[in-house]
Write a protein that binds this DNA or RNA. Structure first.
Length: 883
RNA sequence: GCGGGGAUGGCUGAGUCUGGCCAAAGGCGGCGGACUUAAGAUCCGCUCUCGUAGGAGUUCGUGGGUUCGAAUCCCUCUCCCCGCACCA
């Protein structure tokens, strides 16, 4: 820095305290800690270097953890590595190494970077998901899930990324173009045998419990609700046959949320992939041609082709023509639907295109049948043209039709699918299964876990498939020849329970210590990016519920409070490697220090909001720290010998105010406001020291203690350094939060001072006073304060007579009448002010600010001392200025 | 299309749940002053309009409504962002 001679040496300071914190093990949470405050940032994928998003995420958790520690809580603040995953394989290939070594190198680098940021973790609880110590429990849990009937294996059409050569979860496919979330390659479909976890078994609870997640942002809750997508409806059986030749195709179930529209069904439609559609295609060239050539599920237009089949409407007994249509999706509902063009827009469009009948069966009221020839009427209403059901309203008709119709059933549909966890990759947890020709797929017994990964083989396909020796094994059931399952688990399995492993990271008998987990869980404050709003957070909730049901965990939700932190942007767009608009945390730490980086990030915006990185902002943050350093040095080296006069009292009350307000703000995670209190207090102290000839050393000392304490969570190194300079042997990191005053009272006093100063300025300006000699500030007379109190309490229609019954007020004569009228006019808006004594004291203390500003004598007077108090009101002193 | 969140002074952004101390915090930018040889940094003010004693007027996307009183509550419309989406 250009003005380094005035600043402090951040590198030396930060190293020193990092070392000392390490030596003293200050972030260790002992196993016998009593229900510690569990603060957790989403563990990172070890990509090699920290980026600004990480820095922001972990600064938030670190600051909160430090704040809570100062408040006297035990704190659990661990860190680990989400260290399985595809990028390691790609990197290993590029660099001609292997995923393990590459990942471990990255972890070492990032751990060092975290240390240099001053993040205070209990490293004895570090977990690394790619180690057998960790992933054996993925396998163990998979086995438990299997025992509970929550594991399934079936052939499934999966999203296949040809570039990554792997299966992707639905959530990993992005946008209308269906691109791979990692490499943006268009995704293809493939049929493969896949392992699934039955998250749908928990769909109802996962959905309903969202209502109680009050510590979560609404946006995340809503996204999870959408994702689960529960719909109540009716399953109707349609008998499908080919009437000409009398071929029977059996019953086809169709799901509908609008059973009340059953009389309006004029066609039946099958997905191109439906087995009946496929069968018909075998003998009907038109259908075959449509399926092969024309069907375009992605397209905007609904396309379809008529078949020679009919379907019997189970509600009406009517025969409906059957179409194969591309807007019917195999994986939605049953892949078949009844078409009601009168009351469904998409069906309407299809019917119009193919010339199918359109009938109105729902009306706003019985004698107001809508015209559905141009567009569908999709509202609920009254059923019409529907035999016995005519006249019934929609909701009732749905229930009656479902109850009356043979084979119909009220059912619930979900958008949520079972979770396909199979990945055809090397760098993940091997699925602990052996395939035996005789016995089929067999679980590996617990005693044989972990199934460890073999050496990495550099191949284009799945390296596990190429690991011949590893694959060969024997069947645990029959002892015969068998081969190992070569799929590995989705890494979201790892992150679905890692927060439990921190509780007992070395436990050899189980994934987590049940008793301790019951005490320490749930995570009190979880912080991470909102890209995990659905996937990670939903899977973690699912695992927690299963563990509650099977492993005696007493908690059904893992995260009590969730903060989705905003993005760090540069010129309004997200920092990303591909855009090349990143700012390197390493460079910022080298150039300005970790404290500056942390403080800048925290003061720039509330944690949930996006904000723009600004080099200018970083510089002024650093300048603030330099000035603070200087202030503390000046105090310890100077000889402040002043008295504790009223000016010092003002500073003292500002100290109390800052401490109280900052505490409230830290509690609510509004770090930017908390930090501003510290900065403002520092400025107040500087102004005081500069203004008075001889500052009161104790007051300045207490003030600087407060500033340093308030900054300690965000800028811990310099705060610790200054704490020492201020004469402490004990760590600030272990120190108690300073004592403060009452935040509400402090705010009221500040408002009074601020308003008074503004009034003085106004008068001087408006009256054109060039050079004020003396400024009198006159506090309201007691009787006005009393009158205001009476007016607030009173519920009389006119408060004036009530006031006048009070002798002390009545004797004020016209003044009382006039003030009473003011009060009467503003009856509804009256609020309780500070007492005249408090006002007097507050203004007396703040008088120096006015003196300093106008270079004039300032007298704060009680009403008795003043000649004229007529303008004074509670909260509004009279001001008299002499030129 | 459905669901959610928004629209505030030159910009940014609090306030909206719990209507009144709201011409509306903070920051940035701009202007003036102090300090300085100067610049920078820092500090003190100002920054909707008018006003020779703290006043008045007009403002919080649009139009309406509720209320003694609306940035805040209700309805309409316009636009923006996010999520989901031929979802039966």
């Amino acid at each position: 820095m250009s003005d380094a001679e005035h600043g402090y040496d951040h590198t030396t300071v930060e190293r020193r305290w990092q070392d000392r914190w390490d030596d003293e093990n200050v972030y260790r949470t002992p196993d016998d800690a009593e229900d510690p405050m569990y603060v957790l940032g989403m563990y990172p994928y070890p990509s090699g270097k920290l980026h600004m998003g990480h820095v922001r995420n972990y600064t938030i958790t670190d600051a909160y953890a430090r704040y809570r520690r100062m408040c006297g809580d035990d704190v659990l603040h661990p860190m680990g590595w989400d260290s399985f995953g595809l990028p390691a394989e790609n990197a290993a290939k590029e660099r001609d190494t292997n995923p393990h070594d590459w990942t471990m190198d990255c972890i070492d680098t990032m751990r060092d970077q975290m240390r240099s940021m001053g993040f205070g973790y209990d490293w004895e609880r570090e977990i690394t998901t790619c180690t057998p110590d960790y992933y054996q429990w993925n396998q163990w849990l998979f086995t438990r899930f299997h025992e509970e009937g929550l594991v399934d294996r079936h052939e499934s059409e999966v999203n296949w990324c040809p570039s990554c050569e792997t299966v992707l979860a639905d959530e990993q496919v992005e946008g209308d173009a269906e691109l791979c979330w990692r490499c943006d390659t268009p995704v293809e479909q493939r049929e493969l045998d896949q392992w699934f976890l039955a998250i749908t078994e928990y769909a109802d609870e996962l959905l309903d419990a969202i209502d109680d997640l009050e510590g979560w942002p609404d946006s995340v809750r809503q996204m999870q609700r959408n994702w689960i997508g529960r719909q109540e409806g009716t399953q109707l059986p349609f008998e499908v046959r080919e009437p000409q030749r009398g071929e029977e195709y059996g019953e086809v179930e169709a799901f509908t949320t609008r059973a009340d529209t059953a009389y309006g069904a004029t066609f039946f439609a099958l997905a191109p992939g439906h087995e009946i559609a496929q069968a018909v295609a075998g003998r009907d060239d038109d259908v075959a041609h449509f399926i092969a050539e024309e069907a375009d599920p992605e397209g905007e237009e609904p396309n379809g082709v008529a078949t020679d089949l009919t379907a019997t409407n189970p509600v009406t007994g009517e025969e409906l023509p059957v179409y194969v249509a591309d807007f019917v999706l195999s994986d939605v509902g049953t892949g078949a639907l009844m078409g009601v063009p009168g009351h469904d827009e998409r069906d309407h469009e299809f019917a119009t295109k193919l010339g199918i009948d359109i009938l109105p069966v729902i009306a706003p009221s019985e004698d107001e049948v809508p015209d559905v020839s141009e567009s569908a009427y999709t509202e609920d209403g009254v059923v019409v043209n529907s035999g016995d059901y005519s006249g019934v309203d929609s909701e009732a008709a749905r229930q009656q039709i479902t109850a009356d119709t043979a084979g119909a059933e009220a059912t619930t549909q979900y958008r949520l699918r079972d979770w396909g966890i199979s990945r055809q990759r090397y760098w993940g947890t091997p699925i602990p299964v052996v395939h035996c020709d005789g016995c089929g797929p067999v679980m590996v017994p617990d005693g044989d876990l972990p199934v460890e990964l073999p050496e990495f083989i550099n191949t284009t396909g799945n390296p596990l498939d190429a690991a011949e020796e590893w694959k060969e094994t024997t069947c645990p059931d029959c002892g015969g020849e068998a081969t190992r399952e070569t799929d590995t688990m989705d890494t979201f399995v790892d992150s679905s329970w890692y927060f439990l492993r921190y509780v007992s990271p070395d436990l050899a008998e189980a994934p987590f210590d049940r008793e301790r987990a019951n005490e320490w869980m749930p995570v009190d404050q979880y912080v991470g990016g909102d890209e995990h709003a659905v996937m990670h957070l939903l899977y973690a909730r699912f695992f927690t519920k299963v563990l509650a049901d099977t492993e005696g965990l007493d908690h059904r939700e893992p995260f009590e409070n969730l903060l989705a932190q905003g993005m760090v942007q540069l010129d309004g767009s997200k920092m990303s490697k591909s855009k090349g608009n990143t700012v390197s945390p390493q460079r910022i730490v080298d150039e300005y220090g970790a404290d500056t980086a942390r403080l800048f990030i925290m003061e720039a915006a509330q944690p949930a909001r996006d904000f723009d990185w600004s080099e200018q902002g970083v510089r002024s943050t650093r300048a603030f720290l330099d000035r603070l350093h200087e202030q503390v040095t000046d105090l310890t080296e100077g000889d402040y010998a002043g008295e504790r006069d009223t000016t010092a009292e003002y500073v003292a009350s500002e100290i109390d105010a800052a401490v109280a307000i900052a505490a409230d703000e830290y509690d609510d995670l509004r770090f930017n406001v908390a930090v501003r209190e510290a900065q403002d207090l520092s400025r107040t102290l500087r102004g005081y020291v500069e203004y008075v000839d001889d500052p009161h050393a104790e007051t300045v000392g207490r003030g600087l203690h407060a500033v340093v304490s308030l900054l300690a969570p965000v800028a811990p190194h310099l705060a610790e350094e200054l704490w020492e300079t201020l004469g402490h042997d004990e760590f600030l990191v272990n120190a108690a939060w300073p004592d403060g005053g009452d935040a509400e009272d402090a705010a009221a006093r500040r408002t009074l001072v601020e308003n008074t100063r503004e009034d003085v300025r106004d008068i001087i300006d408006v009256a054109g006073i060039e050079d004020p000699q003396r400024i009198d500030v006159v506090v309201t007379p007691e009787w006005k304060y009393d009158a205001l109190g009476i007016a607030i309490e009173s519920d009389a229609p006119n408060v004036i007579s009530e006031l006048m019954s009070e002798p002390s007020i009545r004797e004020q004569g016209d003044a009382a009448a006039s003030y009473g009228q003011d009060l009467q006019e503003n009856r509804e808006a009256l609020t309780r002010p500070l007492t005249p004594e408090t006002e007097y004291e507050t203004l007396q203390r703040a008088a120096w600010l006015i003196e300093r500003e106008f270079d004039a004598e300032v007298r704060v007077l009680t009403a008795e001392e003043a000649d004229d108090d007529s303008h004074a009101e509670p909260g509004r002193p009279a001001i008299d200025i002499e030129e």
